[in-house]
Amino acid sequence: MSKIHVSTTVNGDPVEFLCEPQQTLLDVLRDELQLTGSKEGCASGDCGACSIELDGRLVCSCLVLGAEAEGRDVETVESIAVGDTLHPVQAKILEHGALQCGYCTPGFVVAAKALLDRNPDPTETEVRYWLAGNLCRCTGYDKIVGAVLDAASEMRGETS
């Protein structure tokens, strides 16, 4: 079977790649494009460690085929910091110590940024509801939720 030629946009750059039909978008990002920020956790759409935005929608890249990315706009965790300047969500996760092993963190960063892009002033319930597709087995979530609320407050220009 011949490989599929896919033209897409990844983190603002036009990207072309060849993939096998059975390669997921996560496989392509990590193994073909060397964007290893997105992690494979469960590989079945439960844990959210592979979260990316596809045409502005938060999705699990492990349940998207690479071939499905044709003509689509892909944003990964690598696009979120600007140079050495962390996004407030990233900075607050560090400040709050909202991680231990860190494996789930890229997915949480992508998901939390997607939330704050749409809803700059979420309630704690809204944050928890939005992050329901991201699992963390270390922190117990409280620090992550606190970091996201704190980042939201900072982004609104409030002092924390």
Partner: peptide
């Protein structure tokens, strides 16, 4: 249904 990632796909 599910979580945001599931509802978006």
């Amino acid at each position: 249904i599910g979580d945001p990632q599931v509802r978006n796909r």
